[in-house]
Simulated scan of single mutants.
Amino acid sequence: MKRLLKYGLIATGITAVIFILFVYRIFFEPSVKISQNKTTIYIPSGAAFEQVIDSLSTNLQVGNQKLLRWVAERKKYPVLIKPGRYVIDKDLSYNSLIDRLRSGRQSPVNVTFNNVRTLNDLAGKVGGTIEADSAEIIAFLSDPENYLQDGFKKETIIAVFIPNTYEFFWNTSASQFYDRMLKEYKKFWNEKRMSQAREKNLDPIEVSILASIIDDEVVIAEEKPRIAGVYLNRIRRGIPLQACPTIKFALNDFTITRVLTKHLSIESPYNTYKYSGFPPGPIGCPSIQGIDAVLNAEKHDFLYFAAKADFSGHHNFSRTLSEHNRYAAEYQRELNRRRIYR
């Protein structure tokens, strides 16, 4: 009897040790290892459990896939899958990995865009950094029904996207991207900026249109408010803006370095040599610097400006057409000397 009791105690002890080792392996032992300093796991929206397991097995060194499945199923993870971008920066136990994925504690991504001329440019720069690809983004932005209720048209919607760096969760759809950028747009256009625009008898879209032109026209930042003042003077007097960047936009040819007389005949509402007032919309994503230049435009009586012939990026400013023509001729001669013909 004592012998049976002894064997029973031994068996119980062995079972207990096995159980403890099993529990330790699940909850504490780092059985899921990363190959480098960190590994990024992407779980798409609507991903099935098998798809997630396959992604984990492909990107991580999983000690025992069956045990990983067992832990996931016990924790009901197959019905609690949360899409996102998960950065794994250390070895984990099966339990810790599933807890991380089940919690949805994903790592955000930084989305940066600038120097954007068209909606296609925007979609190309943003698509792929979030779950929505460029085709989904451009499809959303190409349908005005998606934003008419917010006061925008297809020609003006690009004003919503103010160049900067924004933090997003990876599993962001095209509509969610727009919603977030609209929120940022409204935050940007605070009461101070709205008041500055009203003082100039402008609305945010008109400010954005001028800012986008100035961004393309001006290299020297400190000249932007002065050139903004020139454009505002012309608008107040009913003089066409005659802004070369709008011609490039109308022609959809941004490789042009010299706008020629033949280019000015293009029939387009964006041809500011033909039509007075504002073009239908911005000719690119207006920068913060460009917008603030318009809102803080210099007050002066200049009506013209021409690039300096020294190619410094600075401009000569004029009050009369005859003075402007002299400066423009100097610049044209320098273009010819440098053999810049288009």
Rank of each mutant, 00 (worst) to 15 (best):
I138E: 06
E222R: 13
K90S: 09
I256M: 02
R69T: 07
Q65V: 15
A16K: 04
L80Q: 11
E29T: 14
N171H: 12
N271T: 05
G46D: 12
A297E: 08
E334Q: 12
I18R: 00
P282T: 03
Q242M: 01
H300P: 06
A135R: 11
E334A: 06
F317A: 00
I266S: 00
L303I: 11
H300E: 06
L80A: 12
I214D: 04
I266N: 03
L148C: 01
G151S: 08
N325M: 07
Y304T: 05
L97I: 07
N252W: 02
E323T: 05
Y275S: 10
T320H: 00
T12L: 14
L295E: 03
R180K: 13
Y7R: 08
F177L: 14
F152V: 06
E131H: 12
K274T: 07
W189N: 00
Y273N: 14
N190T: 05
R198S: 06
L141D: 05
Y185C: 15
Q176D: 09
G229Y: 13
K183I: 08
K82W: 11
R3Q: 11
S93L: 13
E330N: 15
S208W: 01
A16W: 10
V87H: 02
A72K: 12
W70C: 00
A243Y: 02
K33M: 12
V219P: 14
I34C: 14
N64K: 08
N110T: 02
Y270Q: 10
Y42D: 01
Y341Q: 07
D203E: 10
D310T: 07
R180D: 14
E330Q: 15
R117V: 03
A293V: 13
G277H: 12
R105C: 04
V294K: 12
R117A: 12
I283V: 09
A221G: 08
D292C: 06
A72L: 03
K224C: 02
N64L: 09
R226V: 08
D310R: 05
S31N: 14
N64D: 15
V294Q: 00
I10D: 01
Q196G: 01
F28M: 09
E50Q: 10
F317H: 00
Q61I: 15
S268P: 05
K82I: 11
E136I: 02
C244V: 03
A197H: 00
I14H: 00
W189A: 01
G104S: 01
S265H: 08
E199I: 01
A123C: 11
R102A: 14
Q332K: 13
F27T: 03
L56I: 06
S45L: 05
K224A: 06
K153L: 12
I14A: 04
D99S: 15
T246W: 04
F140G: 01
L80T: 11
E298S: 09
D91H: 03
G127F: 11
I213K: 01
E184H: 15
Y275N: 10
Q61R: 14
F161L: 06
L9Q: 02
A221E: 15
S312T: 13
